[in-house]
Design a protein around this nucleic acid. Structure first.
Ligand SMILES: NC(=O)c1ccc[n+]([C@@H]2O[C@H](COP(=O)([O-])OP(=O)(O)OC[C@H]3O[C@@H](n4cnc5c(N)ncnc54)[C@H](O)[C@@H]3O)[C@@H](O)[C@H]2O)c1
Ligand SMILES: NC(=O)c1ccc[n+]([C@@H]2O[C@H](COP(=O)([O-])OP(=O)(O)OC[C@H]3O[C@@H](n4cnc5c(N)ncnc54)[C@H](O)[C@@H]3O)[C@@H](O)[C@H]2O)c1
Lengths: 210, 210
DNA sequence: TTTTTATTGTTAATCAATTAACAATGTTTA
DNA sequence: TAAACATTGTTAATTGATTAACAATAAAAA
């Protein structure tokens, strides 16, 4: 199961989210065209993604929701799960920490870090906040391999250095500074302003047409 | 300047963010390879994107930072700017509203909306929060064309209906429910769990290799 | 001044992602 | 039961995005 396209991984995660919903609603099977329309994509795309992960159904009643969830889990999750930390527990960091808690069993936010002494050594949004001074130690102790970066933009580069030095293997960067990392560290960046500017551009186009 | 690829629009927004930083630091010109390395992409990609928007430089000193910012602005921004609203002013909504305020002159969060009476008719994160009861009226009065959706997932579909009915033309959906909209409304979705799961997947792959 | 170097703009080639097409086959209807 | 239909899995074709290649040329060096 090596080398799935990045795009496919993203969609698998989204499928699973939807499938978990279906399961909660008592739906046991789902057609490719149903899953597709729930994600605004084509049924072929769904079938192709599912083909790539090697799942297939015998019935003509669509995919078995439970089974598909498990297969996607085998792809995305590790057996023991991975531990993540939020670095910079300000507005966004708090929102993410509070939101994430308990959503996924194989992915846990086990610590947060900050430099502000008013925040450190307390539980914030349900997770203990440690001082940055203890960062390297805690990464080891808690076996943290993923960092979610929500520090101020001007701190981002310097903090990233430390994340990498401490052995963190994946970074989700929400700061508005884009980062450079060594090739053995996976970096995912997301900038909200870019998203809203994309929306704005297409709204503008729409207005022009009419 | 019609029909630029969506990917290019996203990158232009990112370039501008970087260019604004450069300008603030007093840098007046920038080479394609500099801009590229700041975004972990190739210089050709940068040059191609810039070619597509019709900007070109005469000097061999790289692009004029100020001029390029303006050209990107001509593409992305509208002359009078666009107004956005945040719907659901909880943890995430508050973080976004506080963060966004004043970041872009041609894009403004002019209102927030909520159903919780403790939140309505107050200023939250610097912006007035209105009751959902007033939604349609305020969209008209304030000329809101973009909605940023941060309500609970189970409310998302129903609220979206209302956004569209009220004439909103672009939606940025941060809820974990994926939405269906009519083709004349632009929808951008972002799910944090998908992002972190992508990171987890690639960390897992990395671990397997070593 | 001439040569070398560095950089852009652009076309062509490559690579990646999506979609179309369709055979295979289980399910439903007549 | 036979025919019609619906659905999957997969290959081939198409579309889209990125990268390579390189001519043109300004700037710097010789
Ligand atoms: N709030 C949003 O919705 C939003 C949206 C997009 C991007 N961002 C980005 O996310 C980041 C955080 O935004 P925010 O609104 O939460 O800001 P914030 O100021 O509320 O939080 C930043 C936190 O980081 C801590 N911090 C500062 N320096 C640190 C360091 N060196 N190490 C560890 N912690 C440190 C601060 O004490 C604070 O708690 C910013 O880079 C911002 O650009 C935020
Ligand atoms: N917090 C995060 O970092 C995060 C991350 C990813 C996704 N999300 C998604 O964003 C959404 C909001 O998350 P949150 O953590 O801010 O939740 P929250 O509960 O803190 O905030 C939700 C807000 O929406 C309001 N609301 C409820 N029903 C409404 C309605 N019908 N119309 C208008 N407002 C309504 C509530 O009063 C509340 O203020 C959720 O859908 C969640 O899945 C949040």
């Amino acid at each position: 199961m090596n080398k799935l396209p990045e795009k496919t991984i993203g969609r698998l995660s989204e499928y699973r989210r939807t499938l978990l919903n279906c399961l909660a609603k008592g739906k046991t099977h789902i057609y490719s065209h149903e899953l597709a329309s729930l994600h605004n994509i084509t049924p072929v795309q769904v079938r192709r993604d599912i083909m790539l992960i090697g799942y297939s159904t015998t019935l003509k009643k669509g995919y078995d929701v439970k089974a598909l969830i498990d297969v996607i889990g085998d792809i995305i999750d590790t057996e023991d799960g991975l531990n993540a930390a939020v670095i910079g527990i300000g507005n966004l960091g708090k929102a993410i920490t509070a939101y994430f808690n308990g959503k996924r069993s194989k992915l846990r936010i086990v610590a947060t870090f900050d430099v502000n002494p008013d925040k450190t050594n307390r539980v914030i949004s349900g997770v203990k906040c440690y001082a940055m001074a203890d960062f390297e130690k805690m990464v080891k102790d808690l076996d943290i391999s993923i960092g979610i970066l929500t520090v101020p933009p001007e701190e981002a580069a310097q903090v990233t250095e430390r994340l990498i030095m401490s052995g963190i293997k994946g970074i989700l960067n929400y700061t508005s500074t884009s980062l450079n990392v060594s090739p053995n560290v996976y970096l995912e960046e997301y900038d909200m302003i870019t998203s809203i500017e994309k929306v704005a551009y297409f709204v503008k186009q729409q207005n022009k047409e009419s």
